[in-house]
């Protein structure tokens, strides 16, 4: 399973989860089974005026992610995730490794 995680810094599994979903600084795609980072990229939409969550959600679906970990996405991004059958796991603080552990414990 691929997870999409909005993070505030690019620091591997120790990266902090961003407090905002669509306007997170970086996006990480993470392989949950093999516990491996697939890739990290900067969010080039974060300064756009409107509908940033929609764009971000579209990228997550495009990258084949079926799980989103991080701050609660807005209602429009959520609509995109619902269409794409993407699970949302809300977590507003901690690191990527914390989040992965918590998700597996749930």
């Amino acid at each position: 399973m691929r997870a999409f995680i909005a993070i505030s810094e690019d620091n591997g599994v120790e990266s902090k989860i961003d407090s905002r979903f669509g306007r997170g600084s970086y996006f990480m795609v993470y392989d949950m089974e093999n516990e491996k980072i697939i890739n990290v990229e900067a969010n080039k939409f974060r300064d756009e005026g409107h509908g940033v969550g929609i764009k971000t959600a579209g990228i997550a679906v495009e990258k084949g992610c079926t799980l989103v970990i991080g701050a609660q996405p807005g209602p429009k991004a959520e609509q995109v995730f619902n269409e794409g059958n993407v699970e949302i796991f809300v977590m507003t603080e901690g690191t990527v490794s914390d989040a992965v552990r918590k998700y597996k414990e749930k």
Binding site: E48, H50, G51, I54, K55, A57, G58, G64, V80, E83
Partner: peptide, 25 residues
């Protein structure tokens, strides 16, 4: 269309063959 939209009012999901429109944007 989604790339051209300055207000991000469209979301196109090719894998799912879905086109979403957000009228409020």
């Amino acid at each position: 269309c989604a790339d051209a939209c300055a207000y991000n009012a469209l979301s196109i999901l090719p894998q799912l063959k879905k086109a979403l429109f957000f009228p409020e944007l």
